[in-house]
Design a protein around this nucleic acid. Sequence first.
DNA 1: ACCTGAACACCGTTCAAGT
DNA 2: ACCTGAACACCGTTCAAGT
Lengths: 232, 232
Amino acid sequence: MAAKRNGAESKGSGRRGASPRSGQEPRSEPPLSLERIVATAVDLLDAEGVDGLKMRRLADRLGSGAMSLYWHVGNKEEVFDLALDSVLEYRGPSDIVESRDWRGEIVHMLEDWRASMLRHPWTASLLPRRALGPNILSRLELLSKTLSRAGVVDADLNVAIWSLWNFVIGATTTRANLDLSDDDRAAAQQRLTGLSQHYPTIERSRLLLDNDWDGAFSKGLDFLLDGLAPRQ
Amino acid sequence: MAAKRNGAESKGSGRRGASPRSGQEPRSEPPLSLERIVATAVDLLDAEGVDGLKMRRLADRLGSGAMSLYWHVGNKEEVFDLALDSVLEYRGPSDIVESRDWRGEIVHMLEDWRASMLRHPWTASLLPRRALGPNILSRLELLSKTLSRAGVVDADLNVAIWSLWNFVIGATTTRANLDLSDDDRAAAQQRLTGLSQHYPTIERSRLLLDNDWDGAFSKGLDFLLDGLAPRQ
DNA sequence: ACCTGAACACCGTTCAAGT
DNA sequence: ACCTGAACACCGTTCAAGT
């Protein structure tokens, strides 16, 4: 309820706070800033996962008191939102002017999307439950534009986008979580072979042991694109 | 690490009837049991969401001391696992003998899957991050069998299953979470229209306002199936 | 075998206060 | 404007102990 913080907008590009004499203090910690907080949060999440991000630990890494964060940030949820979006910035060509190969473009965009998420596995748990930040929206916009230009009619556009979104989200969350713990995999294998009479088909196809995630993603994406916009 | 509990198997099918609406009126609580714990956990999750499940609160509803749960259950994670799987029991025809319409069967299975999850929105956050219980595996087995019978060659089987899995997971998590908070939706709309020059395409297609989730799911599923196994 | 209260080790956040 | 320590209200879980 405190009337203090209101920077919930993330200030768009941030960046304005460049101290005139910046770069003078290699020794001591630079002052707190939204940018530093977000960047450090990403590091922490990379290192310790979703459950590893605690406000006190984050403050520790920043060399500040735990409560100092709350001047820059409303609460922990906001840290999640900002970290998530910051990691999903699209660095590919922001616009494709002459897209002869629209399908290749889409495949590239989605594989980049997936790769960005797998580089930071915690995004898989967060993305589906959080608000969409500007970088995420940019990706959707570009995807949308490319599909539209590729000839997908307006009536099918949203279905196409959500289908691709679903595919990426599902693939990354599954990949990030099923793969993370080897002991779980081993246990699952044990259980499956033990109960192979109950699940003969998926046992035979080695569904849970198949770890060609990359191949499954690109092949599945191909199938989906075949359905969405068959090559003429 | 205590050597006590080991009933991690969930005892097969969970959740059979018993006192339907016996909240906490009668003073004579039945004794604690895994089944009661899981069923009550589901109720609690339905009512309060993932964050609403606390061991103390769960014990309250069961009319027991908070620590009593730990005799039946290893920890909170296990409660999540058991609740999740118990809710995903498939009640459809457990086997399709003469499946003329395999495609219809698959659509039915997946729409039932989605419906089961949306009836308990918290499953959307849990399913991708947890171990696969027997009911989930049964669904995968049946799906696998049907696809195989439909003529999907073994080499494509795993890709097909994971693609459909991805689609269902992505669709339900997105639906459950984006739809949950109306204020978020309003905020997103505001932001989007305010920044419509940045995201003209998705603004024009009203991507974030389109709430025909059911239609998007079945249409998208149709597209995906077209790609996976084109009707001859 | 089953259940329990007290207690520990946290964690997010409020508050009153410093500069 | 920015930062802080002390303190509060939790929460999962251990433990020693009850029946």
